[in-house]
Write a protein that binds this DNA or RNA. Structure first.
Length: 422
DNA sequence: TCTGGGGTCCTAGGACCC
DNA sequence: TCTGGGGTCCTAGGACCC
């Protein structure tokens, strides 16, 4: 049986999450800020209409925000994760074939047929009823086209949040209205290349020369072109999301100069990442450590240090990994610079075997022979700060979180299991 | 001074995504 | 004063081997 893809995408997800608890903000402009209140990472439609753009630095837009009385929230990832989970559960109750693509998006495989848009609307209604988050649904023969269909569903009110693209029926005309840079998989660099080649919209990309695309945009680009033509190259991915690398990094609230302070930061990042590592039952083979000065301050001395350390054997043990990471740090640290960001990436993740499980360290950091570094962190930040930092709830190193959200309660009734009737 | 060809593996960096 | 964080995939080129 022929299959099509549906892409379910939550509208302005973080903003919608915040608004769920502040219904009086319905129809009002709101924005959500990134970690450290640095950038705008989510906007309600009203905020978009004011010209506030995605990723824009908060401090540059303060005047505009004040002028229009835009509500501002610091991000609360624990809340967004919880609501995301609820949205996905509603979808999984309705359909067996769900790929959770990101915190606010899911692909679903559906048997091709008539009236798919009507079915999608019932799906949308169910999510909104049980979770309260508005979603848009795009349906098409390929994932890339479903992304575009989703855009039409979202942008054109007459579609009521659900829209289908069918091969050879309406696709070419629609594609000619989509800028090439808006196609999924075509970023800034590729857009420039394509524009120079006279390719400006998705229809032109669809009809582009295969050889040229292969040469200049690699196989990834060619896959995108095939998908625009209706040939599905990106299947639904049900695999358990076992990560291949784990990153923890942060900008500092104020510049950091000394090795002890950087040691604290690196040790903390390792503790956070190692916990995630153990959660997915993996062990790490190598560790990257990096420290950066502030790249936006062009008039101050710039330095970027990074180093990769290979462990003698894969480990999931926090102190072991910290020890290597700190050795790496000593090698890249240069005094006299104002550091603005530090972080680590652990890679070469392998499944834990029995041996490694025996080497396992307690989840509770305080019970491990962990060095004084972590003790110092605990003293400095207060009890349990590590856990809170991991959940994005605390702002170490003098970080600010100016726009406190209200205390949330999420003990809602369980979502009833429904039988799919399709 | 001349100075193969082919294969694999690894790494850094680019590009993209949310 | 204040510019996020966490991921994946692909490729070119170097190192190394025979």
């Amino acid at each position: 049986m022929n299959k099509v893809f549906a892409l379910i995408d939550c509208n302005n997800f973080y903003a919608s999450c915040e608004r769920l608890f502040r219904p009086e903000l319905q129809g009002k402009p709101i924005v959500v800020l990134s970690n450290n209140d640095g950038c705008i990472v989510a906007r309600s439609n009203e905020a978009k209409a004011l010209g506030l753009s995605m990723g824009a630095p908060y401090f540059k837009n303060k005047a505009l925000i004040r002028k229009h009385n835009v509500q501002v929230f610091s991000s609360n990832y624990a809340l967004y994760g919880d609501l995301s989970h609820r949205v996905m559960r509603v979808l999984q109750d309705m359909e067996p074939d769900v790929e959770i693509y990101s915190i606010d998006e899911a692909f679903i495989s559906l048997p091709a047929g008539n009236n798919l848009a009507a079915y999608a609307k019932s799906m949308k209604a169910r999510v909104e009823k049980y979770v309260g988050i508005p979603v848009s649904i795009g349906i098409a023969p390929t994932k890339t086209l479903a992304k575009i269909a989703n855009r039409f569903a979202k942008k054109n009110a007459q579609h009521q949040g659900a829209f289908e693209i069918r091969n050879h029926e309406n696709s070419d005309e629609l594609l000619s209205t989509v800028g090439v840079g808006e196609v999924w998989g075509i970023g800034r660099k590729s857009t420039e290349k394509l524009n120079r080649q006279g390719i400006h919209n998705a229809l032109q990309l669809k009809n582009a020369d295969d050889q040229w695309i292969r040469k200049h945009l690699t196989v990834t680009g060619l896959r995108t072109v095939m998908e625009l033509r209706g040939t599905s190259c990106l299947p639904l991915d049900h695999s358990l999301p076992t990560k291949k690398s784990i990153i923890s990094s942060r900008s500092f609230g104020s510049p950091v100069n000394t090795l002890p302070d950087l040691r604290e930061a690196i040790a903390t990042h390792i503790a956070i990442a190692a916990e995630k590592l153990r959660k997915q039952k993996s062990a790490a083979g190598s560790i990257h450590v990096f420290i950066y000065t502030n790249r936006f301050k062009k008039d101050t001395p710039q330095y970027a240090g990074n180093i990769m350390m290979t462990l003698s054997q894969p480990s999931a043990c926090t102190p072991t990994i910290i020890k290597s990471a700190l050795q790496g740090l000593e090698r890249i640290y240069k005094p006299g610079y104002a550091y603005n960001k530090a972080g680590i990436m652990i890679t070469e993740l392998v499944p834990q075997n029995h041996l490694q499980q025996n080497l396992f360290c307690s989840e509770n950091i305080e019970n491990t022979p962990l060095m004084a570094t972590v003790d110092r962190i605990n003293t400095r930040w207060g009890r349990n700060t590590l856990q809170f930092a991991a959940a994005g709830l605390a702002k170490p190193w003098g970080m600010k979180q100016a726009h406190k959200s209200p205390a949330y309660t999420t003990n809602w009734p369980d979502i009833p299991v429904v039988t799919a009737s399709f």
